[in-house]
Write a protein that binds this DNA or RNA. Sequence first.
DNA 1: CCAAAGTAGTCAACCAGGTTGTCCAAACAT
DNA 2: ATGTTTGGACAACCTGGTTGACTACTTTGG
Lengths: 149, 149
Amino acid sequence: MEPVTMLLAMSYRAIGDQFHDRLKQIGLEPLRPAHGYVFRFLKDNRVTTVELGQHLGVTKQAAAKIVNELDEWGYVIREPHPTDKRAQYVTLTTKGRDYLKLADTLWSDLEQEMGEAIGPDTLATIKTGLTAYLQHVHGDDQPGLRPVW
Amino acid sequence: MEPVTMLLAMSYRAIGDQFHDRLKQIGLEPLRPAHGYVFRFLKDNRVTTVELGQHLGVTKQAAAKIVNELDEWGYVIREPHPTDKRAQYVTLTTKGRDYLKLADTLWSDLEQEMGEAIGPDTLATIKTGLTAYLQHVHGDDQPGLRPVW
DNA sequence: CCAAAGTAGTCAACCAGGTTGTCCAAACAT
DNA sequence: ATGTTTGGACAACCTGGTTGACTACTTTGG
């Protein structure tokens, strides 16, 4: 049997590929996984580029590049920070929120299909098991998002 | 609860980070995950650089770069192909086999610890569940290894 | 048997997504 | 008031991949 690490990598890749395929059929800009993480983060948080970078685990410069793209494509806008004249809030546009909604549906479809393929109870065990593992490894501080190759 | 994709990504990252940390303490060359996949593949297969690239899911040129590094560091050597004068077999040196043995111990330690943290039965369910999922998605052809960010 | 097509490997140019380093203007802590 | 920290932008660079071109060798089909 493959080591669990392999299985994690291959499964992540497998489900991600399917997501990407379905997204491509719809024909949007070539959004990458990182963009999805940005949207999901912006949805619940009012943040600056620096904070976004910390969340993604990249430098503020790298985060700024991503924000630039998303801005050009109309998924986010920058708003002046109310009290700090240096800073800007990055927020989702309607287009951004629409995309996120679509993506979330897609993800939950795929998760549903995974449940049908391997059994909903098995899927549930996987999710609680991995959650517990992350809790065990990271305690209460945020785990790294980005897989490293 | 986080979507299963997130959990896969974060868990892969979490266990990979631990592996990397422990490896660093031993103080070898800065081997990356890809190198590990190479070693594991070379262990059971007599292959050329082209075949290695196919297995990794990268171009032959990219595979050649990796082989070059590993050759310089003494983990692999190139041998002339017995019948095809263009081709070369890439094989593990003793140093390469030793590294692989070490890495495998490390991985199984980490898997063991994961089992202790979340329960061996849960871990077993995760492994069989993910294996079944991969079977479902890819049938009998080889799944992509490399996580994409 | 030989010509045409295909393949292993190398070299070179390029690209994408990060990094570090530097700077400015604004904010914060004495 | 001043010295230090911080958000953001700009630039140079690094790494791990890509595509394209080319050579030497192999394979295939008439």
